[in-house]
Design a protein around this nucleic acid. Sequence first.
DNA 1: ACCTGAACACCGTTCAAGT
DNA 2: ACCTGAACACCGTTCAAGT
Lengths: 185, 185
Amino acid sequence: MATTRRPRADARRNYERLLAEADAAFRTHGVDASLEGIARAAGVAIGTLYGHFPSRRALVGALLRERNEALFERGDALAASPGPDALRTWVRAVTEHAATYSGLAALLADGLDDEASELHTSCLRLAEIGDRLVARARESGTVRPDATGADVTALTVAAASLHEHLSAADAGRLIDLALQGLARG
Amino acid sequence: MATTRRPRADARRNYERLLAEADAAFRTHGVDASLEGIARAAGVAIGTLYGHFPSRRALVGALLRERNEALFERGDALAASPGPDALRTWVRAVTEHAATYSGLAALLADGLDDEASELHTSCLRLAEIGDRLVARARESGTVRPDATGADVTALTVAAASLHEHLSAADAGRLIDLALQGLARG
DNA sequence: ACCTGAACACCGTTCAAGT
DNA sequence: ACCTGAACACCGTTCAAGT
């Protein structure tokens, strides 16, 4: 029994074009870029966009799929063999990921609690990696004993947001301060 | 020579009504609330709103005027006779101020660098108070010697943003971590 | 099975015409 | 001096009709 049918050729082409144009638009104008503009650029009617992607977040989620996998692998590797800078490295990695599109950090922060968000499951994986990193760091004593996974998750989400609103220097400095607070015995 | 004339009675009334309705709308829907809705609620045409307030930020700025004065006085007092928790108190005060309208934190962060923003001068005062607080704290040794005013300003703006995207517990905890990092010798 | 595009309900902003 | 509201240029979202 074939539960998945291969899509019609034009449908597949429209899907790909929409993804490509959405990526370009989100990079230029952030995640709030006009959906009508994306459909126009892809050469399809607006209804076609909605047929493939029922919401803006679904579109963002589809675009992030591969990028997410790379990030998760990086996190798994860090958690498996943590060095002294594992936490800092992880926070930087998530920050760079969020910098893909402006406005993405806010979407991730919301997706953490909102089960209806298409980004929710990937946010949970980010949180889970944070949990494991902090547990390891606690064992090896590089982090204060009362540090929690929530601390790390909050810090990564915060770091991503900060890079949108503060200068890179200010944001980086602030994150270092928080990391040092976390390191304190 | 009278450089300022007293405004027409209806103009003054419209001005007040617009302010009142804008405050209500911003509290309910955040700083991105519909300007047309505000004009409608105030019982004036949309052109009247633009006549009094050329931009959304001008409207926000006008609403914040008094509130700002109270905040600045608080900051001046803290800088004049700083206690051990002066920094933490100040960060909390700015955070609560930014919580007046959702989206205000982002507006403040942008206003810090954007000279064209109607919020720019008040942002500069916030930064200046941060400078003085950190200078005092450095003298009394409650803060690491390389701490700067930029650290404190970044922290306050960040704290305000965090409260919009993170739970109060996570945000508070993160700010405490950064403050502890700042306190370290 | 998929696509189209008109239809609906909203916006922000400007500016000629009124009082 | 101030106000009005039509005009313009945009949105997001749905859905009947087509192929």
